[in-house]
């Protein structure tokens, strides 16, 4: 089968592009680009999942891919865009601790460190070229790069995107442990959606005075007239 030969290369290319997108998330200054990059990153995960379906014939991964498309490629980015339109902020120029060049430098070190550590610990069990090993290195690196993004960004909404990218890292890793029960991926996505909604609502609040905040909450139909959540 040609597909079987192409799939590993396919997966590798996607994994590398995932790392690249992590780098962009660290350095991009425009909020629109951040969301777009996140969307692209999630799409890469879908491609990886499809590659794995070919390779390992776990049809459950198709479900994971479908779920990712619905939630991360479409749902969550749309939600974040909605929030962005409301807060009228286009650019995220505020950084704490580190500016993007330093962060990129640090992420290079992170990738190297993760690679060396994992290579030493896992060398007995896995060949250095096995997909599990690669997935773990790149997944954990992406998680750490996302963490870096969460740390250096000051605006809550870009922090959310950093968090989402971390979660993508976990998913990228989890994809390679194919026997992991599917319902877990499902519940994690639900958890993610709640979290994004919640933080987005609060993010709207954080950049406004209280009166304005409450009126905005009403705009989102989160406070009904006589009390309680809608």
């Amino acid at each position: 089968m040609i597909l079987n030969d192409v799939a590993p290369v396919w997966i590798r290319i996607c994994l590398i592009l995932v790392l690249v997108s992590g780098g962009f998330l660290l350095s991009s200054r425009s909020l629109k680009n951040l969301v777009r990059t996140y969307q692209f990153q999630s799409f890469l995960l879908v491609l990886i999942a499809l590659g794995l379906v070919v390779l390992e014939e776990h049809t459950i991964l198709l479900l994971v891919a479908a779920l990712t498309v619905v939630s991360k490629v479409w749902g969550i980015p749309a939600c974040i865009r909605l929030i962005q339109e409301r807060i009228h902020i286009q650019q995220d120029l505020k950084f704490s601790y580190l500016r993007p060049p330093g962060a990129l430098m640090l992420s290079i070190l992170i990738i190297l460190l993760v690679y060396i550590t994992f290579a030493q610990i896992l060398e007995k069990l896995y060949a250095a070229s096995s997909l599990f090993f690669l997935g773990s290195v790149i997944g954990v690196s992406l998680v750490l790069m996302g963490l870096l993004a969460v740390c250096i960004r000051r605006m809550a909404i870009s922090k959310v995107i950093g968090y989402l990218s971390m979660e993508n890292g976990v998913l990228a890793f989890g994809l390679f442990v194919t026997e992991l029960p599917f319902f877990i991926e499902f519940v994690i996505v639900i958890d993610l959606i709640i979290l994004v909604l919640l933080t987005s609502i609060m993010t709207v609040g954080i950049d406004s005075s209280i009166e304005e905040y409450k009126s905005r909450l009403e705009e989102f139909h989160l406070l009904s007239e006589e009390g309680g959540i809608a």
Binding site: M166, L195, L198, T203
Partner: peptide, 19 residues
């Protein structure tokens, strides 16, 4: 927000541990 960010980001590491 601080609570969410610190706890949730750290919890993601836990999930890697579980995997």
């Amino acid at each position: 927000l601080k609570y969410i960010f610190i706890c949730s980001t750290s919890m993601l590491f836990s999930f890697i541990g579980i995997i």
